[in-house]
Amino acid sequence: MADKMQFDFVSPERRLVSAEVDRVAIPGMEGDLTALPNHAPLLTTLRPGVVRAYEGGSVMEYVVTGGFAEISPAGAQVLAEEAVPREEVTREWLDAAIKDAEEALAVSGEKARALAALRVNDLKALGGQLGL
């Protein structure tokens, strides 16, 4: 498989990764998905989870709390609201994120409640996933 895709990973403060990779796994709002080169154009929002970019035998892992991803045949662009390299994620950081989400849930209106609740659940699940 000689095909490579361009992977751009951007946070509001800076560009974190811009590299050629084999494939990218993204925690989409409606389920995890993996983008390979020549993927059909897709725009999805992110739920809290881990973005993984595979290149050869190595893998880059970033924990994101939200944002969106734009996938085109040429590559994938992930715009994360907050992104932390997986090995730097601590229980405290996650707890703070969960607390924020719970506060948001507490004040959310009728319409936003389902989304906010989903977010709290996702963040809690993330802790188990990461083994924290």
Binding site: G28, E30, A40, P41, L42, T44, T45, E70, S72
Partner: peptide, 16 residues
């Protein structure tokens, strides 16, 4: 470019 949207466009708009 015609994108596929996940979730649908309006939900993405509301989120973004």
């Amino acid at each position: 470019v015609v994108y596929d949207y996940e979730p649908e466009e309006e939900a993405i708009l509301a989120d973004l």
